[in-house]
Write a protein that binds this DNA or RNA. Sequence first.
DNA 1: AAGTTCCTGCCACAGAAG
DNA 2: CTTCTGTGGCAGGAACTT
Length: 680
Amino acid sequence: MEGKKLISATDTQYSSVLLQSLNEQRGHGLFCDVTVIVEDRKFRAHRNILSASSTYFHQLFSVAGQVVELSFVRAEIFAEILNYIYSSKIISISSDLLDELIKSGQQLGVKFIADLGIPPSEGKNMPSEGKDGASETSTSSPGQKDAETQVPVIRPEGQEVTDGMPVITQSFSLHGIEYETTKITVSDSDDEDDDVIFCSEIVPPKECTKDKNSATQNQPCPSPAGVVSDQKSGGSGGSPHLTSTTAAQKLTLSASQLSPNQTQSSAESLVSGTPQHLTPNIIVLNKPLLNSSLSASSLHQTHVTPTINLVEENQQPSNNGSLTEVETTAVDDEEAVEDDVDIISSSSPGSVSSSSLVQQPSVPKAATTEGSGVQKKQVVTFSQEPSSKPGEFKIKISDVLTGNNKELSSGIASKHVAEGQKIITLDTATEIEGLSTGCKVYANIGEDTYDIVIPVKGDSEEGEAKADETPRTSGGDSPNRKRMKVKHDDHYELIVDGRVYYICIVCKRSYACLTSLRRHFNVHSWEKKYPCRYCDKVFPLAEYRTKHEIHHTGERRYQCLTCGKSFINYQITASHIRSVHSQDPSGDTKLYRLHPCRSLQIRQYAYITDHSSSIPVINEGGIVYRVGTGKDGTEGTTSNPPAKQITWDDIFIPQGNEAIFKQNPSEGSTEFEFVIPESY
DNA sequence: AAGTTCCTGCCACAGAAG
DNA sequence: CTTCTGTGGCAGGAACTT
């Protein structure tokens, strides 16, 4: 041993080469495992890279899936940030975007960018907690106000600061900075590679904020989900954030109505939610009645919205906590990870933050509030939905503010702040889902107690947090996984009077049937896409496509038994029966006949996924055709996998790939053997 | 007003797993 | 064979578009 020399070698080029390589991969979409949707653009990237560079993503990916939507940053800005992440450089960015860039950098927890503009001197004092500090000061500092005046410190290259503060130089290199990845201990299993998580922010970009009020009607910020082709934003799916105003979610908006300061506060909290964590928190979920009423527009305000206490069961039963709040005592370690309450949330207050639940007329009688000792979350509100069916009402778990305005919150907030505790405001149930997987959450509404069950990650349904025996096999396709069973983190469950409702984590719609929710969720995730074979439209639901295609084929399956006329769909048929025959089509007697579908093969399990192959193949009813080249509609045999695979780009990207779906039926393409129904 | 699309509970079917 | 899960059609109401 003695005689041997120990040799060390450092490849100084390695990191840069590696980064460059990764960037190239990104450029080609190679190995990208996450899609970040910002406005109407989507960015493919690598989770590892993002999470390593951004505390925000680090946390987000512990719960998010393959698709993430950010609404608090503009695409243009995000592109810059992404470029930085993959190149360590910010190149020639317009100075007027700097403020926004910095702000976004703060929100995303990209230290270098977040720290741009902070004078070195100040920088030194920057809390290592990066985001934390940033968040608190963010609203006031660098980003906004000094905007123009605040010119980032620019120094000659050689003069870099070694204390870790970034300096703007020509090359923008970061020296001496150590990202504290350590603080992020959250990482639990990460694996969730499920569906989609839409992230929005409390303080939306100016433009967005402005319209907030009108947000209900329009989408202030472009939404990705809707993104797709011509489709009308897939209904609700559209943009979960800010927008959705579908009936089911009429309640939303709340956040948007928040007063400036409210918004701000929440903003802070959100921001803080980003990178900081691991602090015992008080989760305050609540929302001022006033606001709620406002927000919900006319709908409910007449009704006084009761305050709900959400109680999250904690390991520690004994929790004093007054009704209003309870602090989350440090949870057991084991669970601590999973619980990081603060983490999460990507949802935005400003965004859709209400959950609606159709409740049965007969509301349960107070199930005893079991949550005796537990962590309580002061929560939110509810509202009765006048327009709903009698007896129905919607539960709204809405935005929360850090205690400043509400009676409750305020008290609490200050109190705990004083105690040095962190008050995390969670807005919407999204957070609940994010933080309490596996925990039971109760919502006490008036006399009644409802359970909110966050399905254990990994095993979707069956509500009751099945203690997650198998922390999910996650992406890791464990061999014994049931038929490609997909893990879904697409919902949480709310149990009302023994009845389970499935709440979409994205838009908060409630469903009585999990299958309905699953089906619905695709409008958010677009995990599967159903392209029309006649035109370039793509649908998130097979049925939509089917109905749409019927219009291409012209088949009229619905026949009026009274006059014999045939119609394309039920609606027209019913309309005809009502107007012409003055009868009620939905009555007991069948007034129409539905002929079997002849032009389209029914029940074809053909859809497309993002998965792999780049060669689109579609298999419909035993016919396999290639849609890529547009040349020959090679027909194959049935047994081929029914997958028509294309990438996100094929769908989302603009006009470029339209060809893919253009089948040009007019050419009499042989691929389609549609039978023109006689009735037509 | 008519037509079209969306939504969601319900149901049946198909295929994989046990 | 049974069970579980995914898938998709249907009804019928609602919202949206033309």
